[in-house]
């Protein structure tokens, strides 16, 4: 089979990817039927703009899941790094993205490394460890820096402009819209992550560790170093995503994104990443987040209040999970594989 998909990605599509693709097409068709304005470039651009921070966070989550762990601290890391970088910049009396971005990424990296060290040495469920660090990061920041919000009037100008900047602008009837600068950033990060995961030893080690930790260590994978990379990279991505989130919202809110971690993890899991590690694709992650974002921003166009978003997303999530794991259960029964749980 030489499908266009294979030509583009160099592999066969996974079942989950096909399923999600079909789901998204059907959903878009339904919404488009109800509201023809939906099927427009503007909608696409909107979704790119709104969904970009989530996409970047999701890349990190994918990496962690592939490595066999789970991380719930990344929204806390995102908010903390971005907020601290802004506060720090004001100390120097600056207002510049070139300061905020590297600092925020560096702080994210640092917090991620802390996660990695704790996970490696405590040898406990990563969920519980990162639940602890999540609270420590958020709590510590709030206690030391306060929780003042900076709406668009008082937030750094450079950040507000970053949120509105477009690389392409289109003048429509009455309003103009454009493709956000977030787009190339997300594309670049997808490409870099893809390259690392599939074309470097580090990436292969991440898969190996997630697939069978004991075997990986037996053939000489340095588990500590691999974990430092996984959680550090995730933290750095979160640092970037935090700034982009503030920019997109046009509001610096240090208590935002609480509870968001579960949504992003859910999106990545829908995309086919397994909690048992070693499995997950970047395309699947992209589709999972896209689906989530569609529910978030387009239910209104179906004539439903936005309060239905969680209901729909939760239902799709449960259905997908049941499908994925029931299939595995049947295969296990056939092959006489017995699993814990």
């Amino acid at each position: 089979m030489n499908s266009p998909f294979r030509a583009l990605f160099g592999r066969r599509s996974t079942q989950v990817e096909r399923y999600l693709g079909v789901l998204i097409v059907i959903y878009s068709a339904v919404v488009g039927f109800q509201n023809p304005r939906f099927l427009s470039l503007e909608t696409v651009f909107d979704i790119v703009h709104e969904g970009a921070p989530t996409m970047i966070l999701a890349i990190g989550v994918l990496l962690v899941l592939v490595s066999g762990g789970i991380d719930v601290s990344f929204p806390a890391v995102a908010i903390c790094s971005a907020y601290v970088s802004i506060k720090l910049m004001w100390v120097f009396g600056l207002d510049a993205l070139w300061f905020m971005a590297p600092v925020s990424i560096a702080i994210g990296l640092l917090l991620g490394l802390v996660n990695a060290l704790l996970i490696h040495f405590l040898k406990l469920p990563t969920l519980i460890v990162t639940l602890g660090t999540m609270s420590v990061y958020r709590g510590f920041m709030a206690v030391t820096l306060g929780t003042s919000q900076y709406p668009v009037a008082t937030m750094p100008k450079s950040l507000a402009e970053f949120g509105l900047a477009n690389i392409v602008s289109v003048d429509g009837e009455g309003s103009s819209y454009g493709l956000s600068v977030f787009f190339p950033i997300v594309v670049a990060l997808f490409a870099v992550t893809w390259f690392i995961l599939y074309h470097t030893m580090l990436g292969r080690a991440v898969f190996a560790m997630g697939s069978d930790e004991e075997a990986a260590s037996r053939v000489g994978v340095n588990l500590l170093r691999t974990r430092l990379f996984v959680y550090g990279y995730t933290g750095a991505l979160a640092g970037m995503a935090g700034l982009m989130y503030f920019a997109a919202m046009q509001n610096v809110d240090p208590v935002a994104l609480q509870g968001f971690e579960l949504m992003v993890i859910a999106a990545v899991v829908i995309g086919g990443a397994k909690l048992t590690g070693g499995e997950g694709t970047i395309l699947g992650t992209f589709l999972g987040v896209l689906l989530f974002q569609l529910f978030q921003s387009t239910l209104v166009q179906l004539g439903l209040a936005s309060t239905w978003a969680s209901f729909f997303f939760g239902s799709v999530l449960l259905f997908s999970l049941a499908m994925i794991y029931y299939r595995q259960r049947k295969a296990d029964q056939r092959n006489l594989v017995f699993r814990i749980g």
């Binding site: 579960l262 909690l275 969680s310 209901f311 939760g314 449960l318 999970l321 029931y326 699993r339 749980g341």
Partner: peptide, 25 residues
């Protein structure tokens, strides 16, 4: 269906919240 508990309850927690939001608006 053998969904790991952490994922099953992650899904249901979003779902329950969704149902609650729909009921209360």
């Amino acid at each position: 269906t053998s969904i790991p508990p952490i994922l099953a309850t992650l899904g249901t927690s979003i779902f329950f919240t969704g149902v609650g939001t729909v009921i209360t608006g």
